[in-house]
Design a binder for these strands. Structure first.
Lengths: 243, 243
DNA sequence: TTTCATTTGTTCGTATGTATA
DNA sequence: GTATACATACGAACAAATGAA
């Protein structure tokens, strides 16, 4: 079985480029790792070295690969700049990055607010919150695994609205929260627990950015408390001055 | 010999709390480790379980201990909140935290700016920068390992001034930079390389917060490019809205 | 899946010490 | 000195969560 087909109307370099791109996006070889030499790739696909070079040039064009003269080609470290500002919106971030974003609902629950959550949201003891767990993908990668809490009293049946609109911003708007902003953000680096690593499809030995955040409405009342675990491999937080 | 004294005007729970606090601060038991059960502690101090509970409640209040129902009480992992804002100053941060800060100069060099550094500082190719490596301690722990770059042309003999004044802020002031602020900050989570792990006295398996920052003067000209690696165990970055 | 021991959390009651009007 | 309020300390019983058998 040959991986590529000749005379199918798709140039060989293009097919090879596609195969290598999908392998890289699947994480094999890893970021920063060296690609097989042009010679070896030529042998693998049974084409001329020039054809391989043309394929790699296409990958460089897509910023998936970086080649260094005399050393070899390497999988370009991809970092997605995730902008943190007073007005942080996931969807907007993804649009800015020009990637295909996709959200997956994992779980929703109605439960008594854990102490930390209650404190963050300014709730009393024994008050209820919705806990909503989501996975965000972009370009086929897991960007983050997020746990968000919303007070039940203020946002009855929030999960249903969120599911329907697929956006925190629009869901909150439906409850009359026209605008909200980050009150604060806490960032730490840690190793994911087994559950998190599995969900994020990454080894437990790779660190994640652990971000706790509180969003408040225009009157300063907390509307959302969230924990977002960003893939350390793919995401870099960017904090801008001003905004 | 009894560890606590009754009827001396100091409540039993307060004495017990003090003893446990000093043990924890000495690192025994260590961070994350489980405390003896309330039952065992009651036996050790020969008091009622309630009294021990009161003592532990005080430790929770001081954020030295975390207790989980059905599991036990654990020494709270201490994180130092490191405030990132437009006007981030290490010394100020440490003063706010009320800890003994201490800086150690590791290395200084005069070298041609690496491409990334040149770009960040707005320098041309082949321009020189000072590279200064420091270790910051607080309360006996390594807080961060920092590499800072300053353009040689604008700040001749910067390292000597920095060494003398032991403060970036004051050293820059001596060169006429009355004020500066963060242009931006990039944060990622990664595993330290062997060199970094050794310097920071932490295992290479524990992640660090990798922070790249650019400080600019009031006219917007970059004055410093830096890479700071914060101990993931001890430091949590806090990003406040507004300021 | 069930059972069981361990541990923390909560709520009674009782007694005593301490400060204050 | 007396009355009152409050914090401290102990005892017993039970509820709730956890983890291991």
């Amino acid at each position: 079985m040959s991986e590529i087909e000749r005379g199918r109307g798709v140039a060989l370099w293009s097919q090879i480029s596609g195969i290598l791109a999908s392998e890289i996006l699947k994480g094999q070889p890893r970021q920063g790792a060296q690609l097989p030499s042009a010679q070896e790739l030529a042998a693998r696909f049974d084409v001329n070295r020039h054809t391989v070079r043309r394929a790699i040039a296409a990958l460089e064009e897509r910023n998936l690969v970086r080649t260094e003269q005399g050393r070899g080609s390497f999988v370009q470290e991809q970092t997605m700049d995730y902008l943190i500002s007073r007005r942080t919106r996931f969807a907007q971030n993804m649009r800015n990055l020009n990637v295909e974003a996709d959200m997956e609902f994992l779980e929703e629950a109605r439960e008594i607010a854990p102490p930390k959550v209650a404190q963050a949201l300014g709730l009393g003891r024994h008050e209820y919150v919705y806990r909503i767990e989501t996975l965000d993908h972009a370009d086929g990668h897991v960007v983050d695994y997020s746990t968000a809490y919303f007070p039940v009293a203020r946002f009855p049946d929030f999960p249903a609205v969120y599911r329907r609109l697929r956006s925190v911003t629009r869901a909150l708007a439906e409850f009359g929260v026209a605008d909200y902003e980050r009150k604060h953000t806490r960032v730490s680096a840690r190793l994911p627990d087994a559950h998190t690593a599995r969900l994020m499809k990454q080894p437990a030995s790779r660190p994640v950015l652990h971000v706790q955040s509180i969003n408040v409405d225009t009157r300063g009342m907390p509307v959302q408390y969230g924990i977002t675990r960003f893939s350390g491999d793919w995401v870099q937080l960017v904090l801008m001055a001003g905004h």
